[in-house]
Each structure stands twice: as C-alpha cells, then as structure tokens.
Amino acid sequence: MTEEEPRLSAQEMIERLSPVLSLGLRVRAVAALVVGLAGAVFVAALWWSEPGPLPGRTHVAFALFTVFCLAWAGYGGWLLTRRVPLFAGEQVVAAWIALVASVVTAVVVGVVAVQRGTGLGLAVAVGGVFVAAALVLAVRAHARRAALLRRRRELTGGREEV
C-alpha cells in the first residue's frame, strides 16, 4: 500500500483541530448581539420618552449609552459572520470596546460629579476600577493573540497561508 495520504496545510490542521465557532463563542456572540440590541432599544426608548427638554449632558449620556449598546450588538453580529479562525481577535475587539466604554463612562461620571459638587473621589475610584479591569483584559487579549499568531507562524514555517 503505497497510497499517499493527502497532506494538510498547517491552516487546515488548525481548522480541523478546533471548530471555527465553538459553542461557547457562538453563545457569547448571540448574547452580545441580543443584549446589545435590547440595550440600545431600551436606552433609546427611555431617551425618547423623557418628558420636557433635557439638559445637553443628558442627551450626550443617552447617545453614548446607545452607541455602546450598538457597538456590542455589532460585535456579536461580526462574530456570528466569521468563517475563519479568529486567533483570539474577538477577545481583542471585545477588550477595546470595554476599555473605550469604561474610559468614556468614567469621564462622563467624573464631569457630572464635579458639576453637581458631589465630590470627584468616589467617581474616580469606581471609574478607575472599571478602567483598570478593562485594561487588564485588553493586555491579556493582546498577549494571547500574539502567542497564537506566533504559534501559527511556527506551524506554517513562517508562511502565511490563507
């Protein structure tokens, strides 16, 4: 028997070793999509149903929360449409969304606290915790992605196969 088995590229081996969208990743993607859309609808409905004229900073806050929700919905939709190995790219995207949302929210809460004269200390402390957690997640996601891409280069011998 001299039949030669077909040789697989490193990319094909990686794809066969793990499904492109595991069940856990699919669940997270659907959750991000559904919760993001529900949040956007809820915040927009609350914004539109407010009686009387709202202050400018309230409009900005509602708009930012709506954008954050739509960003998570877009992230969920993007994940569901991927048909290639992501090499932890989805974690990097999620970490950046979380980091931007945390920083912007912390700044808005800080500005509101200063304007109301309620003290900046608590706002900075709470905002700092959320920003620090998001930053840790971003650093870990980048490190994991870099390790996976390094491993892929090792498996492919430096060739980028698509």
Score class of each variant (00 low, 15 high):
93 V>D: 10
112 V>A: 06
100 V>H: 13
108 V>S: 01
125 A>R: 05
91 Q>H: 14
123 A>N: 03
104 V>Q: 07
111 V>K: 03
86 L>D: 13
126 V>C: 08
121 G>H: 03
127 G>C: 04
128 G>P: 10
109 V>P: 02
87 F>H: 13
110 G>S: 14
103 V>T: 08
118 T>N: 04
121 G>N: 12
100 V>T: 13
108 V>F: 03
118 T>R: 09
108 V>T: 11
92 V>T: 07
85 P>D: 04
127 G>H: 01
108 V>H: 03
130 F>T: 03
84 V>Q: 15
101 A>K: 09
106 A>D: 12
112 V>I: 14
91 Q>C: 04
84 V>D: 14
98 A>I: 02
107 V>L: 06
127 G>V: 00
91 Q>P: 00
84 V>R: 15
130 F>G: 11
111 V>N: 00
115 Q>A: 11
113 A>T: 11
129 V>R: 04
90 E>T: 14
128 G>W: 08
109 V>H: 09
126 V>A: 14
94 A>G: 05
93 V>N: 05
89 G>E: 13
114 V>F: 07
120 L>I: 13
97 I>Q: 12
116 R>M: 08
125 A>S: 13
125 A>L: 15
116 R>Q: 02
100 V>M: 14
118 T>F: 08
118 T>E: 15
86 L>R: 14
90 E>Y: 09
107 V>D: 01
122 L>F: 04
86 L>A: 12
102 S>W: 01
109 V>S: 04
118 T>D: 14
91 Q>Y: 07
88 A>L: 03
121 G>C: 02
105 T>R: 14
126 V>H: 01
99 L>F: 14
101 A>H: 08
87 F>W: 13
92 V>M: 11
117 G>V: 03
124 V>C: 03
100 V>R: 15
84 V>A: 15
124 V>L: 14
92 V>N: 08
117 G>Q: 02
97 I>M: 15
88 A>N: 01
108 V>Q: 12
85 P>S: 00
112 V>Y: 12
114 V>Y: 04
116 R>I: 01
111 V>T: 05
101 A>L: 09
127 G>T: 05
122 L>K: 10
110 G>W: 03
108 V>A: 06
103 V>L: 06
106 A>Y: 07
113 A>K: 02
91 Q>G: 15
129 V>N: 03
96 W>H: 13
106 A>S: 03
105 T>C: 02
101 A>M: 06
96 W>I: 00
127 G>L: 00
122 L>C: 00
102 S>T: 05
108 V>M: 09
114 V>A: 12
88 A>Y: 13
98 A>C: 13
103 V>Y: 00
123 A>V: 05
92 V>E: 12
91 Q>R: 12
88 A>S: 10
119 G>T: 04
124 V>H: 01
114 V>K: 04
103 V>Q: 07
120 L>F: 00
91 Q>K: 08
116 R>C: 00
